[in-house]
Design a protein around this nucleic acid. Structure first.
Lengths: 210, 210
DNA sequence: TCGGATACGTACCGCTCGGTACAGAATTCG
DNA sequence: CGAATTCTGTACCGAGCGGTACGTATCCGA
């Protein structure tokens, strides 16, 4: 169906991108509609017409965030071994939460770990989307057990939970201004813990060449 | 100096306690003054007279929280070995963030990892108070190195950072509704990582008696 | 060229926000 | 008793909130 009526005077994708950053920096409740429209370069009625309102805009922002800023998770899950999956996840998460061209931390946490009672659904939405990632990781680790990549006694659910806890803590830390290099050290300690607890073997000599 | 004028009609300590819970559950920005006064059982002018305003009340609430709900940290630091310090910290943190008589999670994170620009000082205040705990732990681990309890090549700052990252992640997870038992598993994995990375030796047979 | 459709911009809606003025109630001191 | 002092409750302040009505501008198809 071809276009009818006056064409939109802004790039909706780019506007959404700006909205992501505002929500990321200020949280759902801390980001006012005026903050958003100003950053997006549009007026309130345009926001409403194009995105449906503040809450819908937020959900679309989170979806975009998951696709663009957490895309490394897809690459991580595609790694051949459980060790490499987790190593990629932890290391790339450090990079993601400390990008200089992005707000520090993670939208999924900064967005709102707690909210006023009327906005409680927002916190719940974010929490369940994070737990969704955890389930995906647990599935990937269960596959590793099935394939013999991890020992049979390894607990995929518990291991996935540990890894996600570390990534969340890294995000909180990054939001507080901790540097990428400092977070990298922590990621390596966590990786060692994962290896010790799971029985995963690191690749022979791949990760840190001389 | 004896009392003069009409006596206060409420217990300021108990009122502060209620304020802690409201801020904890709803965050700084999500907790309105009306929410607070309702939970505290007082009127707005009383809140203002007794606590100075919303922001001052929040800072007092955080101070009270640190003293009461994070008291386990003092006990942890008093443990004789680095391993036991970290083990106590991780395990007691799991208990603290999953108390049924308290909101889930941790006020220091729920309070606000990100805020509107005008309330940005609040997020900064919370972040720096968390990092204060990390410095204290690093000092304690440095002492362990000096005492020969940890090997000389152990990095107290990096290890402390790792431990704090895990506690923060546990708090985020707990706020999402993850159970105490599930978090305990993750704490043990983290503890194993700490031991592996630091060279700390667990006590011979103290932790899990048959 | 004109009608239908869509987007834009201004100006506004009711509501809640954090904070306070002020009058009345309760207490101690003289 | 009365005066001084402190707390309580109501009623209110200006400002900003999320959301919208409405007139105008800009496009397409006929």
């Amino acid at each position: 169906m071809p276009q009818r009526g006056r064409p939109r005077g802004f790039d909706a994708d780019e506007a959404l991108e700006r909205a992501v950053e505002v929500f990321w920096r200020q949280g759902y409740e801390g980001a006012s509609v005026s903050d958003l429209t100003e950053a997006m370069g549009i007026n309130k009625p345009s926001l409403y017409a194009a995105f449906g309102g503040k809450e819908e805009l937020f959900r679309k922002a989170v979806a975009r965030y998951a696709e663009k800023d957490m895309g490394y998770a897809r690459d991580a899950f595609a790694q051949p071994t459980a060790y490499e999956v987790v190593a990629t996840l932890l290391r790339e998460n450090v990079v993601a939460v400390t990008r200089t061209d992005r707000p520090a931390g993670c939208l999924s946490i900064q967005g709102g770990t707690s909210c006023s009672t009327e906005n409680a659904p927002i916190a719940g939405f974010l929490a369940s989307s994070r737990l969704g990632g955890e389930v995906a990781l647990a599935d990937r680790l269960a596959r590793a057990v099935a394939e013999g990549d991890l020992p049979a006694q390894a607990d995929p659910v518990a291991l996935a939970r540990f890894v996600m806890i570390v990534t969340e803590g890294q995000a909180v830390h990054a939001a507080a201004g901790v540097s990428r290099e400092d977070l990298r050290q922590a990621a390596e300690i966590a990786l060692a813990g994962f290896a010790a607890a799971s029985g995963a073997r690191p690749p022979e000599r791949a990760t840190d060449p001389a």
